[in-house]
Amino acid sequence: MDGEPAVLAAARERLGSALFRRVAGPEGPVNRARIHDTPGPRWFGPERPIRVVHGDASMFVGGVRALLLQSLHPLAMAAVAAHSGYRGDPWGRLQRTSTFLAVTTYGTADDARRAVDHVRGIHERIRGTTAEGVPYHAADPHLLKWVHLAETDSFLCAHERYGASPLDAAGYDAYVADTARVATALGVVGPPLTRRELADQLDACRPELRATPEARAAARFLLFQPPLPLPARPFYGVLAAAAVATLPPWARALLGLPRLPLAEDLAVRPAGQALIRTIRWAMPPPPAAGRDRTGERPAAGASGTGPPAPAE
């Protein structure tokens, strides 16, 4: 950044590179160039709210929240526990799903369609039964809808609380409508188009939700056993606490995560804001050469920085 001391600039570069490698993987630079430099029409123009939300560092909070919320559907969690490899290869999974988000949000329409077709092919192969003998299939439109609802609500809530420039009510309605385009392509039937519809459809799912042993194990892994070196764990702890603090009370109750209003208001929220500002500082927009061919420079993190949903 202009006028930044050399020592500070070097520290920012090291931190930004380390974060980018974690979320984008070894192919991250190549994927970023392909996503933003390939000419052609996009599903979403540079003015669309989905680009604002998915390009913000608040996605780190939203991703953890989405995983916790999604785990509460027994069929979705059974599929994740049996097929996702989230324990054995959590970073690889994060990198694949963050790339999916980046391609569908910023990439060409052809690349977005190919990414969706690839995920749909994976969903078709994922089927089984829960411990209670209930069958599940990852391509079930109802199950896909739950995953979409939890993801959209999580990214929206995290952006509203921690985003650099929160949207107004109309902007968040438009964000929900944007995500519906991707959801429909993935096989979701009747996704919400406004925030009110999103809330109503989430409420309609609540009778199906419960904290299975698999869900509680996933929550323990996400919150208390992250695959990170010890020096990084306090920072991740802030991220995890910020994600938990944005969960609805009923979800926290199911997962046995108590609300501590004073601690959350006086400590968790300010710490979360400071951490997200630091991530945003460390991961600035790509250089001008990295513009996508819609003509607008992408927002910070546009190459895929948020840990998204487990079913993608």
Rank of each mutant, 00 (worst) to 15 (best):
H118V: 10
L68E: 03
G63D: 13
R114F: 03
S71H: 10
A109Y: 05
R113Q: 13
H123V: 12
A66H: 15
V103R: 11
G121W: 06
T97G: 04
L68K: 07
T104D: 01
T105F: 02
A79Y: 04
D111H: 10
R96M: 11
R96W: 07
A112N: 00
T130E: 00
T97K: 03
A131I: 07
R96I: 02
R125D: 02
A66T: 15
H118S: 07
L75H: 10
G92L: 08
D89N: 13
T108S: 12
T99I: 05
A66I: 09
V119C: 01
V64N: 11
A66L: 11
G85K: 03
G62D: 10
V134Y: 01
Q95P: 02
G88N: 04
V80Y: 03
P74C: 11
H118T: 12
H73N: 12
W91M: 15
G128N: 02
P74A: 10
P90A: 05
A81Q: 07
G88W: 05
P141H: 08
A79S: 13
R114S: 08
T99H: 15
A131C: 04
Y106K: 07
L69M: 14
T97P: 00
G85P: 06
A131M: 06
M77V: 04
H123T: 00
A138I: 12
D140V: 09
M77S: 07
T105M: 11
A76C: 10
D110N: 03
P74I: 10
I126W: 04
R96P: 06
E132I: 04
L69E: 13
H118W: 05
S71G: 12
F100W: 06
L69K: 09
D140Q: 09
A82Y: 07
R127C: 02
H137I: 00
A115F: 02
W91Q: 08
E132T: 15
T104W: 09
P135E: 06
H83Y: 15
P141T: 08
A109S: 10
R87Y: 07
Q95M: 04
G107Q: 08
P90K: 08
L94Q: 10
S71P: 09
M77C: 14
T99A: 15
R113F: 04
A109V: 12
D111G: 10
H118D: 01
A138Y: 10
Q95R: 14
L69P: 01
A139S: 14
V64M: 09
D117K: 13
H123D: 09
R87A: 12
G63V: 02
D110H: 12
A81G: 05
T130A: 00
R96D: 08
R113G: 06
L101S: 11
I122L: 14
G107K: 03
A81P: 01
I126H: 06
W91K: 05
A139Q: 12
S84L: 14
R113P: 07
V119L: 03
G128T: 08
T97V: 15
Y86M: 08
V134H: 11
